[in-house]
Structures are given as C-alpha cells and as structure tokens.
Computed example of a mutant assay.
Amino acid sequence: MSVDVLVPTRNRPVELGVTLAGLAAQDGPIRRVVVSDQSDDRPSFDTAPARAMARQLGRRGVEVEFVRHLPRRGLSEHRDFLLGLATASHVLFLDDDVWLEPGTLSRLWAAMSELRCGFVGSAMQGLSFLDDHRPGELKPYEEWAGGVEPEVIGPEQERRWTLHNAANLVHLAEKLGIGAGQWRPYKVAWIAGCVLFDRQKLAQCGGFDFWRELPAEHAGEDVAAQWRVMAKHGGAGVLPSGAVHMESETTVPKRDVQAVDVVR
C-alpha cells in the first residue's frame, strides 16, 4: 500500500515551496507527489525552493511530477484531474498553503491502517490564534469509539465545524494530554486542507465527478466529496492535527456557489 500526494496550486510560489518542504520532512509510504498548477502566469512550482524540495524528495525515492492544467474549469475539475492521475492505493489531497509538521503523515497512515474508513484528515490550524482560546467551540468534540461508522451529515453534525476554527485543535490536544506517538479519531463535519482518502472508496463514491454540474467559480468541493464518502464508508479527523495553515490571502474570493448546495 502506498500514497500519492496530490497538490493543486495557483499563484502561490512562496506557499508551495513551504508545503513541499513539509512533505520532504515526512516519514510514511509516499510513492509520488503530483503538483498541478493553474497559475495565471509563471507556474508556482517554477522556483528554486520548489525544485530543491523536489530533489530532496527524489533522494528518498519519491517521484515528483510538476504539471500544468489549463484552462481553469473550477476547483472540482482540478481535483478530479489530479485524482485521475493517481494510481496508489491511497491519495493525500494537500492544499498549497499547508505545512505539515514532521510525523503528521505517519500518524494519518497509522489511523487509516487501523480504522479502514473512507478518509482520515488533519484539519489545518491557524497559529496566529494560539492565544485565542474558544472553549465553546470545542463542545461538539466526540471521539469515535469502536471504529468509524458511515454517517449522513445533517444540521446537527454540521455543528462540528467549529472544532476546526482558529487554533482550536492545538488547544484541544493540549487539554486532552495526548502524548508523543498517540492519536485519537474524532467525528467531523468535514476537513479542509489535508485529507488522506482510500482511493478506491473515493472513486466508488464518484470522486469529484460532479464538477460538470457546477460553474467554474465555486467552493466547497472538498465538502461535497467528503460527505459522499462519509455516507458510505465514514470519515474521521485525527488529533493532534499537525497541519499548519499559512493564513495567506485566499485565491478563491468568489464563494457564492457552494458545491453541496448543488450536488448533494
């Protein structure tokens, strides 16, 4: 079993270099990293730092592939394209503005190997909020006990989204006293930024094939795909997270159309 890491990127040369640096420091069964670029001008991967990290990954036997994918047809189509390039048993969709602390991928892989659900993920955390404690937003926290089960996400389950605000998971992991090498699976509404899928289960649920139903300007494609997978195979967040959001300005300013409102 192995992992293909899939990174969609656009207009983020600095952030992409940091993302690749995080990947280069990971242990775990990475077989290949595919970066697909839709930048307006020069590709985000056309930098010395990106090339240096690609070489470092190559030294470890990880194949790195940089591709351009144009014209832009929306976030869902871009993810669908990347999924079509994957051949490993599992795929890690990693956003181009997320840095993974060492050990994150190994933790996700351990969780997936034990839970064998549709996906597990590390929700990205904004470390500028380390001093912003929000105990009220942690109330929906509930761990999976005895394995992950399929579930349909409704209004009650959607309330879990507050868990992933600010630096909430950092504070929660500290509060629970999770030790080195330990992890806990918990129930989620969805996970943004870093999600490890069982590729076959994601494909069985249609992947991101709903892109044709959406206008090019949309958001929430990750939510729509995850809800499909959760309904059949279940999904879980993994604590501690280890995924750090760079908190850069969004490259998707228009969010009027949410994928779940169209394709669910």
Rank of each mutant, 00 (worst) to 15 (best):
S241I: 01
G220A: 10
S241L: 02
A259S: 15
W211I: 02
V260E: 14
L196I: 06
A243N: 05
H218L: 09
V223P: 00
A224C: 12
C205K: 03
M246D: 00
Q204P: 00
S248R: 13
V260M: 15
S248V: 15
R228M: 10
E249N: 11
P240E: 11
C194F: 02
G220D: 09
V244Q: 13
A224T: 00
P215W: 13
L239K: 06
L214S: 08
S248I: 09
H218G: 09
A259P: 11
Q226G: 07
F210N: 01
G235I: 07
H218V: 09
A243C: 12
A216C: 09
E213P: 00
Q258R: 15
L214V: 07
V252E: 03
A225N: 08
R199I: 08
A259H: 03
E249D: 14
D222N: 08
G235R: 06
G237W: 01
Q204V: 00
E247C: 14
L202N: 10
V252K: 01
G242C: 07
A225G: 09
V223H: 01
E213L: 15
V195C: 04
A203C: 11
K201C: 04
V223Q: 02
F210R: 04
G242W: 08
P253Y: 01
G220W: 04
R199V: 08
V223E: 04
F208V: 01
M246C: 00
K232Y: 09
V244N: 09
F208L: 06
W211V: 01
G234Y: 12
V223K: 01
Q204C: 05
G207I: 07
M230F: 11
T251L: 01
